[in-house]
Design a protein around this nucleic acid. Structure first.
Lengths: 238, 238
DNA sequence: TTGTATAACTTGTATATACAAGTTATACTA
DNA sequence: TAGTATAACTTGTATATACAAGTTATACAA
């Protein structure tokens, strides 16, 4: 961790999470923190702004920073996190099964979305996710072969993102997501334990690399009773 | 608008939205922008970081900033925006009807959540929202009387937030949100045109003021086919 | 006692400087 | 010609300074 403000941010997060600084207590002032971490005030302010953006503290002009209570122990706080990263953190008893790993037949909508009219094929990876015995999530991932030349079943059973970032050196940067509710398809009914539910929650994502190239399209289809999305939002002030 | 970096941010947003700077073009470099707006580089960087956070640009070290394509013409990009602010921007044909405006009977769960064991009553405001003739959203708002002493039907039919911020001078600051899918209650069936749908999407929000006091709890209940949530997310780098 | 000014804090904004680190085109060398 | 060094750009991080603006406790005055 070479970036000072990032290191300080994570240290402060830890102090809040371990309740060394519990909810409603004031943080040390920016001046005190510059002393504690022997750095400049601007560096401290970068760290504090990250805490504020992520819902750990509220800054009060003239007063200081208060720790606020976020149930951070929860499901997807808006961000790009893979299923494995998520469940590892939560210590859930989950099982991933690859049900399909192939190239996409041509002339589909996904080809158009991923902008691959040319020679590049599209990887098609279907995975079902089980939590405590029930199969409740179907992930349909599509990758442009231009950026992901090789995939294997063992990679897909673990973390594709870990493979892309660590082995292939890809730099995943941002995503546009859409959450909607749809009627289950035959495919959903076949692969999921729907238990009579007549809807699925669908999260569609377009994922981009650092150079802004689009490399992945994903549909994550959830049984509605097992879906939960948690968000922290700040009101924009002019 | 006294804050320079905010003014610059909004000017740059406008240039992107009007496609004076279309998708994939490079922004002027930070040095050029300091010249154009006769300010310092740090001020420009604050504006650019806002653009990056909100999905307008991608910054590339050593190269510059590229405009990326966000369908910003869309539904709730993660934030605190009132229904009126939202639909005004989109120019939708909507109708709001207040179906209930009263004090909440005591000893409810909402009392506990809003932490008002004491003397303070809780406002209970139910509103149904119609879009092109169909009633598809039920908003159940609860306000602590401590912060919102008075409400009227006309206030509720327009924007409660406008009233709170402009008339009462309250400073709405942040919210914790949860999106889940539930079975419709009898109340939902009574007040909404459910058309046989057997689920509703529920957005539960806890809304806080600047001094971190909790003043509002809201349940926004949507017919699933009319629900859509759009988000922009960045992957966190260490 | 009550109210008011003030001083000493807090965070917010704006500016300047220095250097690190990544990119790219140019010019030069083998 | 092909390859390589370099120079001139870009953004990222860290530091310092100055002042504005909001909060709070203290001291003072009526």
């Amino acid at each position: 961790m070479q970036k000072k403000y990032m290191a300080i941010y994570y240290e402060l997060v830890k102090k809040i999470q371990t309740e060394e600084w519990p909810t409603s207590t004031m943080l040390p002032s920016e001046n005190e923190l510059t002393g504690m971490y022997s750095t400049s005030r601007e560096t401290i302010r970068k760290a504090l702004n990250l805490l504020s953006q992520n819902g750990y503290i509220q800054k009060l002009r003239g007063k200081g920073s208060v720790v606020i209570d976020v149930n951070k122990v929860d499901f997807p706080v808006s961000g790009i996190v893979s299923f494995k990263e998520l469940t590892d953190n939560l210590g859930l008893d989950t099982k991933t099964t690859v049900t399909e790993l192939s190239y996409l037949e041509s002339a589909s909508n996904v080809h158009k979305v991923l902008g691959s009219e040319e020679q590049h094929k599209i990887w098609k990876v279907f995975r079902v996710r089980g939590i405590s015995g029930e199969t409740v999530i179907l992930d349909k991932d599509y990758f442009n072969e231009k950026y992901v030349p090789m995939l294997s079943e063992s990679i897909c059973e673990n973390s594709i993102y870990a493979h892309l970032e660590n082995e292939l050196g890809l730099s995943i940067s941002f995503a546009q997501k859409e959450i909607i509710v749809e009627e289950p398809t035959d495919e959903d009914r076949m692969l999921l334990d729907l238990e009579g539910y007549s809807n699925v929650v669908v999260i569609k994502s377009l994922v981009y690399l650092e150079d802004t190239s689009l490399f992945q399209y994903t549909e994550s289809r959830h049984r509605p009773d097992k879906f939960r999305f948690v968000d922290f939002a700040r009101r924009i002030k002019n």
